[in-house]
């Protein structure tokens, strides 16, 4: 399977079209970006809470959305990290060519507040300053971190509504979905799928998700076929053994 994925990456077959159906949680983010009820140069908080091992997926999901936000509103970002590696990953994300180009042209400004210690207590204390932001974007690979941010900022956001977007890994998105259904989260951009949808909406920029999609689709399909085939094979063996046992009796 690894070889098949590598071959698909090199050959970039176009058998698998880019994703089309846009789920409601992604549509909500796209609608928010289209309407964008925030002023030019508005302060936007971006919270980072993901592991370096998940950087590939998270950056692919976050980049097109942030790129659009920068193009439309030239925001003043404030970065904060709730895990130790988050502030370094924030710098890594913003150093990408897509953002470096905007930064050079004065498309946005940012300040990195670094690591916010204290877990849920730290977020609770930090949340007092949230009404000063036009929007909050949480970039995370961990459903527990998303839950902590949603729970600890809920009281403040109930009093002063602030749009809350979550960019998550595909792994944690199903756990964050109920918070979207309850209206506590404005929208979710889930993993590579969300990134690929946003790239289409963002005139194909920066193109990373588009180049990952051709090997990703057959990789997922192969895994599904392997599990289905393995399950059916086991079922057939089980039925054969049972029949043999009955015959023996």
């Amino acid at each position: 399977m690894t070889i098949a994925v590598f071959a698909a990456f090199l050959l970039q077959p176009q058998f698998f079209a880019a994703p089309r159906p846009v789920p409601n949680e992604v549509l909500s983010v796209q609608s928010w970006l289209a309407e964008l009820p925030i002023p030019q140069n508005a302060p936007v908080l971006v919270a980072f809470d993901y592991e370096p091992s998940r950087a590939a997926e998270i950056e692919t999901a976050a980049t097109p959305m942030l790129d659009m936000l920068i193009l439309f509103r030239h925001p003043a970002f404030t970065f904060v990290a709730t895990n130790e590696t988050g502030s370094m990953l924030a710098e890594r994300l913003i150093a990408q060519p897509t953002f470096a180009e905007h930064f050079k042209n004065g498309g946005f400004t940012y300040s990195n507040l670094g690591y916010l210690p204290g877990g849920q207590m730290g977020i609770r204390a930090f949340a007092r300053g949230l009404p000063g932001f036009a929007a909050i974007i949480l970039i995370t690979d961990d459903a527990e971190a998303a839950r902590a941010w949603i729970e600890q900022t809920q009281a403040i956001r109930s009093a002063v509504p602030v749009p809350f977007i979550v960019v998550s890994s595909a792994q944690s998105a199903p756990m964050i979905e109920p918070y979207y259904d309850s209206g506590q989260v404005t929208g979710i951009v889930p993993g590579l799928y969300g990134g690929a949808l946003f790239e289409q909406y963002n005139a194909g920029r920066p193109g990373t998700a588009r180049s990952y999609w051709p090997p990703f689709s057959p990789g997922m399909l192969l895994a599904a076929l392997l599990m289905l085939g393995g399950g059916l094979w086991n079922l057939a063996l089980g039925l054969r053994d049972r029949a043999a046992a009955k015959g023996g009796k």
Partner: peptide, 14 residues
């Protein structure tokens, strides 16, 4: 989701 995340990481390494 776990598999999709791992697959994306593998493709990024490639």
């Amino acid at each position: 989701g776990v598999y999709a995340a791992a697959l994306t990481a593998l493709i990024e390494r490639f």
